[in-house]
C-alpha cells in the first residue's frame, strides 16, 4: 500500500512547524513507521539543525528533482532513531526552482518507500506553501494562542479546503497559567473561532529549547511535556485517532487540587 503525505503548515512564521514536524516524525518512527521528513523551505533550511543532522548533508531536494542524485542518496538516515530519514532543503537555490508538479512527482516516489512523509512547510502562502499542499493528502495546521497566528491559520485552512484537504489543528506554545488568568486565548476559544478538529495541544516548554540547542529529538528528552504531547499526536495520526487530547491546564489544576487537598488535611 502507498504511504501518506502530511503537510505541517501555519501561515504565520515561528509558531513551531519545524519543531513539531521533527518530533512527530521521530515519534512515528519510534512507533515503527518508516518516515521521511522533507524540508520545504528552499533557501532557508532549518530542519537539519533541529534534527541534529546538519553535518551529514550531501545532496538536497533540488538535486533530486533536477536528477542529480537518487532519493536514497539525498535522504539522511537518523542514527539514533531507526527508520527516520531527512530530505534537506537546498540552501543556495531560489524558491521557484521547484514547481508543484515536481513535488507531486517526488512524493509519489516517496509514497512507495515510506509509510509516512511529513512536509515541513515554510511560512507564508507563496511557492513553498503551494508546492507543499499540491503534494499532500492530509494537513496539520499549527497556531499559537495569539490573534495574528489564529488569523493566519484561518486563511491557510481556507486554502487547504480549496484543495479538498480537511486539516487538523495543533495549538502550540500554550502557557496554562496565562490561560487560567484569562490573559491567553484558550484552545476552546481558538477551536471556536476556527471550527476545525483539534489533534493536539502543546504547552510552552523550555525542553524544546534544550533539545534544539543540542539537536536531539525532543521526544527522547526526559519528562518534556511538549515531547509527550507530540508523541500523542503521532499516535493519533497512526492508528489511534480517538486518543483523547489532553488539556495542559486540566493536568495542572488536577495536581494543584490534589496539593491543596493534602495541605488542608495537614
Amino acid at each position: 500500500m502507498d504511504g501518506k503525505v502530511i503537510v505541517v503548515t501555519s501561515g504565520k512564521g515561528g509558531v513551531g512547524k519545524t519543531t513539531i514536524t521533527a518530533s512527530i516524525g521521530a515519534a512515528l518512527a519510534v512507533q515503527g513507521k518508516r518516515v521521511a521528513i522533507v524540508d520545504m523551505d528552499i533557501g532557508l533550511r532549518n530542519l537539519d539543525v533541529v534534527m541534529g543532522l546538519e553535518n551529514r548533508i550531501v545532496f538536497n531536494i533540488v538535486d533530486i528533482i533536477q536528477g542529480k542524485c537518487k532519493i536514497k542518496q539525498a535522504a539522511i538516515k537518523d542514527r539514533r532513531i531507526d527508520n527516520l530519514f531527512l530530505i534537506p532543503a537546498s540552501q543556495s537555490d531560489d524558491k521557484d526552482v521547484i514547481k508543484p508538479e515536481n513535488m507531486v512527482w517526488l512524493t509519489n516516489k516517496l509514497r512507495k518507500e515510506f509509510d509516512i512523509t511529513l512536509l515541513d512547510c515554510p511560512a507564508g502562502i507563496e511557492q513553498g506553501f503551494k508546492n507543499s499542499i499540491a503534494a499532500a493528502d492530509e494537513a496539520l495546521v499549527v497556531c499559537t494562542p495569539e490573534v495574528s497566528a489564529v488569523r493566519d491559520a484561518d486563511r491557510i485552512i481556507g486554502l487547504l479546503y480549496a484543495q479538498s484537504i480537511t486539516p487538523k489543528l495543533i495549538v502550540n506554545r500554550i502557557v496554562p497559567k496565562m490561560v487560567e488568568n484569562g490573559d491567553m486565548l484558550s484552545h476552546e476559544d481558538v477551536v471556536d473561532v476556527l471550527s476545525i478538529d483539534l489533534i493536539g495541544l502543546i504547552e510552552m516548554d523550555e525542553k524544546v529549547v534544550v533539545a534544539t540547542n543540542t539537536g536531539t529529538p525532543l521526544i527522547l528528552q526526559e519528562d518534556s511535556k511538549a515531547g509527550m504531547a507530540l508523541q500523542r499526536i503521532a499516535m493519533r495520526l497512526d492508528g489511534h485517532p480517538d486518543l483523547p487530547v489532553e488539556n495542559p491546564m486540566i493536568q495542572k489544576s488536577f495536581w494543584k487540587k490534589l496539593g491543596s487537598k493534602f495541605s488542608r488535611k495537614n
Binding site: 495569539e146 490561560v179 488568568n181 484569562g182 486565548l185 476559544d189 473561532v193
Partner: peptide, 23 residues
C-alpha cells in the same frame, strides 16, 4: 481560579476576551 472569579465579579475585562473579539 479564585482571582479569575474575582476579575469576573469586578467586571474587569480579561485580555483574552478582547483578543477573541478582535480575532
Amino acid at each position: 481560579k479564585f482571582n479569575t472569579l474575582l476579575k469576573k465579579l469586578m467586571n474587569k475585562n480579561e485580555s483574552k476576551d478582547i483578543a477573541k473579539k478582535r480575532l
